[in-house]
């Protein structure tokens, strides 16, 4: 039930930074024209894009009393960890961490296994129904998740899945699948078939060749793809909100939003909590960027 929109957004663009991330592109020598104005524009973009994140950090470390005043300085004047303390000590934080960790880990592993099998079939074989399958993989991503919320809820309920980790895991795994298949397929078809063929000549079976030859080569692809499923699973709100009614089974996003619906939002600890939830995601995003770049330069993944 992770929103197809976000998944798609992350996925499609996901490999794009590969070409771009940090100056792998040479500066164009012909641009002698004042780059100053472009730099200025760049700084403006930087400020606009970074300010909300900056303000989140500053507010997270700011004492409660200063947060509630009209004299908040743009620069951090005093630091405190009280926002983080109250976030961590608030009810159900640790149980939510546990739920999110369990659900995310299992989902990512399961989704990658399933997706690899399917992607391998699609990328390496031509079989009847292949094209419709590809189209289905695209189309299901366009369904508004909301349209399926109630029936999914009823189905899970009938199967005794309410408040159960596996309910979220199953739905998240499957919703990660179309993108993962699509993306992995892109990596698989870019690995020269000859490599496998020579392995098969050396006595490997079809699947043996896949595991020994293709699998290591698409490592970066798997890393990237898994981060996108990870991010989506980690962030999903709506299904978790409906299925996990037991406070002790909340996921982190549900826990985060419960802080705002309670009496009087404490923005200091809300921002601290936001930092805690966003941090792993941002770190993974940064890591995957590198992997993608190295994958690209090593030539394992190319056009």
């Amino acid at each position: 039930m992770s929103s197809p929109a976000t998944t798609l957004r992350r996925l499609t663009g996901g490999s794009a930074p590969a070409t771009t991330p940090d100056g792998t592109q040479t500066l164009r020598p012909d641009r002698k024209k004042p780059t100053r104005w472009y730099n200025l524009g760049g700084l403006l973009v930087f400020v606009v894009m970074a300010f909300p994140v900056y303000w989140m950090l500053v507010s997270a470390f700011r004492p409660g009393r200063e947060i509630r005043s009209y004299d908040q300085t743009l620069w951090p004047s005093s630091f405190t960890l009280e926002g983080f303390q109250s976030a961590i000590n608030s009810n159900f934080f640790w149980t939510s961490v546990r739920t999110s960790l369990i659900v995310t880990t299992v989902t990512v592993v399961a989704a990658m296994l399933l997706a690899l099998l399917t992607a391998f079939a699609i990328g390496r074989f031509r079989f009847y129904g292949r094209k419709p399958l590809l189209i289905v993989l695209v189309l299901v991503q366009l369904l508004p998740p909301l349209a399926m919320l109630i029936p999914l809820y009823l189905q899970l309920n009938r199967m005794g899945g309410l408040n159960q980790y596996w309910a979220l895991i199953v739905v998240y795994t499957v919703s990660a699948l179309p993108f993962a298949v699509w993306m992995l397929r892109g990596f698989i078809i870019n690995i020269p078939r000859e490599l496998e063929e020579s392995a098969m000549v050396d006595g490997c079976t079809r699947m043996g060749a896949f595991w020994r030859v293709v699998f290591p080569l698409i490592g970066p692809g798997i890393a990237a793809t898994s981060v996108f499923s990870l991010v989506n699973t980690w962030n999903e709100y709506l299904l978790a909100y409906v299925v996990m009614q037991d406070n002790e089974r909340w996921t982190l996003p549900v826990w985060l939003m419960s802080m705002t619906t309670q009496r009087g939002t404490n923005f200091g600890s809300l921002m601290a909590a936001s930092v805690l939830i966003a941090l792993p995601v941002v770190i993974f995003f940064m890591i995957v960027q590198r992997k993608m770049a190295s994958g690209l330069t090593s030539g394992a993944v190319k056009g």
Partner: peptide, 18 residues
């Protein structure tokens, strides 16, 4: 529970086994 969404959750829960 929270007042804001209690009835929504209750409605859903009453349809279920939990």
């Amino acid at each position: 529970q929270q007042w804001g969404d209690k009835t929504t959750k209750l409605d859903a829960a009453l349809g279920g086994s939990e």
